[in-house]
Every structure is written in C-alpha cells, then in structure tokens.
Design a protein around this nucleic acid. Structure first.
Lengths: 338, 338
DNA sequence: TCAGGCGATTTAGACGATTCAACTGGGGTC
DNA sequence: GACCCCAGTTGAATCGTCTAAATCGCCTGA
C-alpha cells in the first residue's frame, strides 16, 4: 500500500483537497471542527507530505546545498552547524556535500544540486574563479562563497587570513623570537598565501627577524612531523625557535616531531597553529592556534543567501569579512610552563 | 528569465516534448538528426533537468539518505565513501545527514528524508530498537542499519565487535601481558559492551590473566589522557602492562598520558586502540588498532538497500556481519621497537 | 495497388500539492 | 423581502517530466 496522498486524506475527512492543503499551510482559516477531522484523517492514514510535489509547484525547493572541501575537518562541520541553525529557523534543509578537494566531485555535486533546483548553494570552492559558479547564478541558482573572498558578482563570507598570520607573527615576535619558520602549502592556495603574507608583513615592519618558509604539498599530520624532524636536526644556533603552521594538523605533526627528537615545547621550539580544532586543545602540549569563527561564518553565509533569495532583483552582492582570534596556550607560552 | 523546461527545448528544436524526453531517457530510439537538434537546443537554452518533476512522476526520488552519528569521525566518512561509490554507479545521490548522536536531530533528519520520499535510508541509529525505524519501513521507506545489528525486520550491516575485542586480547596475551586494562564507555553502548565481552572471553579461556575495567562517559582524547595519568600513577608492580581502548581517540589521549608521566610505550605500557583512524597511524608512537572495514560496510549497506528497493515484495531482510582486522604497530610491538 | 510493418514521433494523461477565483449558506441590514 | 457580507469551502488549473498508446510516413512484399 503506497503512501497516501492529500486526496485520500481529504476523502476520509469528507472535505476537498483544497481544504486539506489549507489545513497544512494556513490552519487559521479552517473551521475548528473541520481542522479536527482533517487532523484525525492525517493521523489515521499516516499521511506524509510529498516534498517533490511542493517543489514542483513552488518552482524552488526548500533545500540549500553546502559544499565543503572536507567534512572530516571540524572547521567545516562547525561551519555547517552555523548554517543549519539558521536554516532550521527558516524551515529549510541543508544538504551537506563533501567535495574532498576534488574538482570533479565538486562539479558532480553542483550538477545534482542544480537539478534539484535548490534554493541556493553555499560553497568553499576548489577554485573560486571557476566560471561554473557564475554560470549557476546566471541560470538562477544563487551562490555564496564560504571561507573565500569573491571578487566579481558573488556574495561571500571569509576570514581575514592576512590578519591571522599577522596575529601569530606578532605574538611570536613579542615573545622574543627572532628566528621563525612559516610552514604550509601549497603556497598557491589563497588561504596559505594570505597567512604567509600576514606574518611576512609584520616581520618586515619589525625588522631584525629572520623568517624562513617551508612548503608542503598537503597539510596533514605526517607532513608536519617530517618537517619537524627536519628542523630538529638543524644545529640549535641556526634552528628557528618558533614555528607558525598554516593549519593545526600540520602543527600537531610538528609537535610530535619535536617530541620524537627530544626538543621541548615551548622552551626549545614555540608552536602556533591555525584553525583551533579540538585536537589542538587536547594535544600533549596544548596548542596555541588562530581561531576562525566557523559557526558564525556558516550562519552569515546562510543569511546572505536568504537575503539574495528574498530580494531577488534588487539584490547587491556583498563580501563579508570576519576577523580571526589568536588563542594562546602552552605551546607558545613560556610563562605558563614556567 | 527562469530556467527553461523541456517544453521550451522542444519548441526550439521543432519537436514535441515527448521526443525531448525520449532523447533524455532513451536516446537510442531518437533519429540521429533529431537527436542533434535537441542536443543543440538544450545547450543553447542551458536546459537543466528538474529532479522534482521526475520524482513526482516516478513516485520515488533517486536520493538515498545516510544518517551518521558524527561526520567528523573518519570512520563514518569512509563509510559514506563506500556508500557513495556504489550509489554513483547506480546514478543515485547520497544525502549525508549528521545526527551528532542526538535523537532529536536524528528524528528531524528522518522526517525530512521521508518527506523527500527518498529511495531509502542508511542509518547508524542512536537507538536501533527505535519504533520509528520500523514505522518508516511500514510506510514504504526501506531502512538499512549500519554498524548496528538488527534483530527484527530490518536489514543491517555490522562488524563483529566481540571478535575485535578477542583479537586485541589475544594479541596482548600472546605478547606476554598478564595484567591488562580495558577502557571504554559507557558500557551500556552495544559496541563497547561487545568489545569488552570479546576480550573478557579470551582472558577467561586463557586463565591466569588479570583484566581490569575502566569506564568513561565519553570516548574522547581528554578522557583517555585522564585515565592514562591515573594508571601511570599506580605502582609499577600492580599497574597493567597493556591497555585495550574501545576507540582510537581514547587511545591517543591515553598515549599522551603515558608521555606526560614519562612511561615508555610499548615497553612500560602496550596500547591497542579501535577503529584505526588516520591519526592512529600518525601518532607519536604509531598506534596498534582494530580496523573496521568502513568503506565495505557502506558499500554493502547500499547494496542491501538497492536489493530491497528492486525486489520489493519478495525481499527477505538480511543481517550481514563483517570481521575486523588487528593492525599491529609500534604501540604494542616490542620487537619492532627493539 | 494495397495491406502490413516498422521506425520515429506525437498526444494525452498522470504524479501530488498549491493557489485562486468562484461558490455556499447563514446572518445582518435597510 | 432583497441585498450584501463573510467565513469556510470547493474545483480546476498549474508546475515539469515521463510513459503508454496512438499516429504518422514510408517502405516492402504480395
């Protein structure tokens, strides 16, 4: 026995389909007695609304696509959390898609979302200049970039990565470090480049500080550890006394590398990471890290999208930029460790 | 200008909508010349299929819901990977939903999925005896339990957790350990209880082995570390020489606890975790762990679902159980470390 | 020349919910 | 008694796609 439709509900309640629809959407205009009958009928039949039919009629669905680079990364799940919270208030569903930093997967997800006529798409794109994104908008699906800054005709929410790099650099310099390593990669990634630019800027402003760059292909624990062991092998006199790593996974690996080599953190090597994931706080030596307001980012992206959907024609694209915070913990703090 | 429909495509190509539909679904029966014209028209207008309309017509959507307890956990993303791979082959979309171990969120997701008339739902439920699940099936949405064993009328795929516990225990006993700690919790969780039962069984079969239980509320890094420090504080004579932890996060924390207390792993304390997440391999001392075939689990779940969808009436529910593997690394291996 | 057949295409409903103009009937007003 | 009002309800049209049945040419073989 198939799921009953509004028609069967109407029949059983002895009313027309229009009334049932009214009950569902504008219960106020239905007479109390009728309301009760429809209610009972729905319950008795186990009626469940058919979203597909609603969408078809409405022209647009009540779903928003959220495409992220890596669902495993807590930064993105926090972001999703923020987006979902706001979506929930507006009776909207978020469809989470994991592109895994793969443009092909990303494209596939975008195709699917467009076919579903989603209300809009929030995306941390592999390449924010991808013409496909603006094409989507032209064909009527609003797109908001997340954790990326849009230049052209798109809305975006992002975090000031240059400032993040600056904060980390300032903190290390003020703690007395004069030989600092920046570790991240690939340097072609916007985020990484900006963080590097930030610390480079403050280093140059200060003068008399030696900043070294180490590039990695992937920002994972394994790579961080390798670089850590590499640095640890340098003679103490020329070795950096502090390292700023472009994400926390790198930093965690780096920390392990120090432990393996017998260097003490922060005494022999101060460490600052980026993202402030939960693991950072729970590490053997709690990790200092630059925190991004992930949840707020998600929430704001959803806000921009809803604004765009509602105001349609007269909508002006906006680029919102948030500021990161430096969270200082033991890994870069002499005083705490005594 | 709204997205064009099949109708406009037909008009521009000088054919009927039926032909366009045929082109889309059975291109073989359309004359090559006509095919070309339709093709061109689609391209010129930027036509994109409307899934909502297809669903409405077909009665069911081509989407499968996958509800997991924690998207941040690599185990579940690997699982999703397996499910998606098979889905892709069948031209199906997977909608990933994160319940965050919250029954309310889980319920909300289930409601949404049912309203969308998804093809079916794969779920690692908060409570596998939830009547809501069988209600879904009764109303026509197939459900397959993942990483849980169904007792009643449901399909399920799971991993033999008792065997996992057994493997870990056997390995430690054969390595010569006679005082072993089992750490996990809450013990009421099926998974945890099974792993505990597994190691308990082999311990009893062997005899002359002292197995101690430590229960935690949450299986996270912080808790593992706390227990680690607690054990490290015991006098060496009565302290367990090996620990089996019910997940890798606990084990990682435990490992940190050892480091902080100055105990060497595996010499002073051998460690075996569960799940074999990436972090386990990359830890300061690479972690031995019981691996679950996550991707296979996801793939099989999807297989069962598709089987159920296709054979409909004459489908018999099945419970598939996979076997875990023990991956031995340095944390429990004397020989490797010399 | 015509029946039959075949490939290609068209036509005509569904599918389920929503919406809106049209209707109903009871009550009040003049 | 004629009129209007209004809350409540109805019925039909609509959204875009798919499919089964109907139709159209055109060719072949008798």
């Amino acid at each position: 026995m198939a799921t009953p439709s509004i028609k069967e509900v109407a029949q059983r309640a002895g009313v027309s389909v229009g009334t049932v629809s009214n009950f569902l959407n504008r219960p106020g205009i239905v007479a109390p007695e009728t309301r009760q009958r429809v209610q009972d009928s729905i319950k008795a039949l186990g009626f469940v609304r058919n979203e597909a039919a609603r969408h078809l009629r409405a022209g647009r669905s009540r779903t928003v696509g959220l495409v992220v680079l890596d669902v495993t990364n807590p930064f993105f799940t926090d972001l999703a959390e923020g987006a979902e919270a706001l979506a929930y208030e507006h009776d909207t569903v978020v469809m989470l898609c994991n592109s895994k930093t793969d443009p092909v997967r990303e494209g596939h997800h975008l195709d699917q979302l467009e076919q579903q006529r989603v209300m809009g798409i929030l995306i941390t794109p592999f390449d924010s200049t991808d013409p496909r994104l603006t094409a989507l908008v032209d064909r009527g699906t609003p797109v908001v970039l997340v954790d990326r800054t849009a230049d052209r005709g798109l809305c975006s929410v992002s975090v000031d990565d240059q400032l993040g790099g600056r904060l980390a650099g300032k903190h290390l310099i003020e703690s007395g470090h004069r030989r600092i390593a920046f570790i991240g990669g690939p340097f072609t990634m916007q985020q990484v480049a900006d963080r590097k630019a930030g610390i480079t800027a403050i280093v140059e402003e200060t003068g008399d500080v030696d900043l070294q760059h180490y590039e990695v292909d992937v920002m994972g624990v394994v790579e961080g550890r390798a670089i850590g062991e590499q640095l640890a092998a340098l003679p103490a006199r020329s070795r950096p006394t502090a390292a700023f790593l472009a994400n926390d996974l790198l930093a965690l690996g780096f920390l392990q590398g120090m432990a393996v080599a017998g260097l003490r953190v922060p005494r022999d090597m101060a460490i600052v990471g980026y993202d402030d994931i939960d693991f950072a706080r729970a590490a053997a030596v709690p990790l200092s890290s630059v925190r991004q307001p992930a949840e707020l980012l998600g929430r704001s992206a959803m806000e921009l999208l809803q604004e765009e959907v509602e105001s349609a024609e007269r909508h002006r694209h906006r680029q919102v930029i948030f500021q990161p915070d430096l969270i200082v913990r033991d890994s870069s703090d002499f005083k705490r460790r005594r």
